[in-house]
């Protein structure tokens, strides 16, 4: 026993190193296999507050272009709302704070009701393999996990963690996140993800050969993910080639949203998300 303690003391530095390294590497590995970290996350109070304070100073310089963009967006939305109100004035009038997206309203099968709010970006990165965005709104503002995040009507990411005052968003520029996307012109869909190389381009995979693809085709959301309504712009096809030894195209998509310059984003809440998830989970465990 005495010898054991002697040995432990003699090599205590190496033992401590191995112990700590095991702990940290376990953190890395568990994080990589499960999508969500619960504790180490920039939605925590400590870093959230710091980012919030700091960004409120630095973003002063970016406010003017944002205002202009928002004014333009407001005008477009007001026009759309106006048209909707005219359409729906015969009979079924809808509450002013909820909007049926035109595309979905037409489709009576998929009558999902989406609600929109906004939040300010307080931290954002594009230089890592797994990029995240931190927002200044949290649980007390009604933000929930799995809400879609957009900027100027273009897909940006998905809310993963929510704390009382802040939330983190897994960015489209995160090689761990996939979203289903389709070519707007012909409705063929594939899976969209980022290969971690260029922050302006993502890759559309699983698109079979027989699909006619052209440079400049618009790529939009499919509406299969229940976090995003159908038809939100993601980007345009900038390059495509036939992969060697595979049956699918390699399609490069130029992103519509400017990830380097995100200040204000929109949050989309699918009010029927719980119902959809409950129903889908029955398929997994039911039989």
């Amino acid at each position: 026993m005495k010898n054991l303690f002697k040995l432990l003391y003699r090599y205590h530095v190496i033992f401590l190193f191995v112990l700590l390294q095991t702990l940290t590497l376990t953190m890395v590995v568990t994080y990589n296999s499960y999508q969500r970290a619960t504790f180490f996350d920039s939605s925590n109070f400590f870093s959230g507050t710091l980012f919030d304070k700091f960004s409120s100073y630095t973003q002063i310089f970016e406010i003017r272009p944002v205002n202009i963009r928002m004014a333009e967006e407001n005008a477009i939305l007001r026009t759309a709302l106006n048209q909707l109100l005219i359409k729906s004035s015969h009979g079924n009038y809808k509450a002013a704070d909820s909007i049926y997206l035109p595309r979905i309203a037409k489709d009576s099968v998929q009558k999902a009701l989406f609600r929109f709010t906004t939040a300010r970006v307080i931290n954002n990165s594009i230089n890592q393999q797994h990029n995240f965005i931190t927002l200044n709104k949290g649980r007390k503002d009604g933000v929930k996990p799995d809400m879609g995040v957009i900027a100027n009507g273009q897909v940006v990411g998905l809310v993963t963690n929510v704390s009382e005052n802040f939330s983190t968003v897994i960015s489209l520029l995160n090689s761990k996140w996939k979203i289903s996307a389709k070519i707007k012109r012909n409705d063929y869909f594939g899976s969209l993800s980022w290969n971690g190389k260029d922050y302006r381009r993502v890759q559309l995979n699983e698109m079979p050969y027989h699909v006619p693809v052209q440079n400049g085709d618009t790529v939009v959301t499919t509406g299969y993910s229940s976090s995003f309504p159908e038809g939100l712009t993601i980007g345009t096809v900038s390059d495509f080639s036939i992969g060697t030894g595979s049956n699918f195209y390699k399609i490069e998509v130029m992103l519509a949203a400017d990830f380097k310059n995100l200040v204000v984003v929109g949050l989309i809440e699918n009010k029927q998300l719980n119902e959809i998830k409950q129903l889908e989970s029955q398929n997994k465990y039911g039989n």
Binding site: L23, T24, M27, F40, D41, S42, N44, F46, H130
Partner: peptide, 10 residues
């Protein structure tokens, strides 16, 4: 804590 990368920097 700041970069959402548990364990990597550590």
């Amino acid at each position: 804590l700041f970069t959402n990368t548990p364990g990597v920097h550590a």
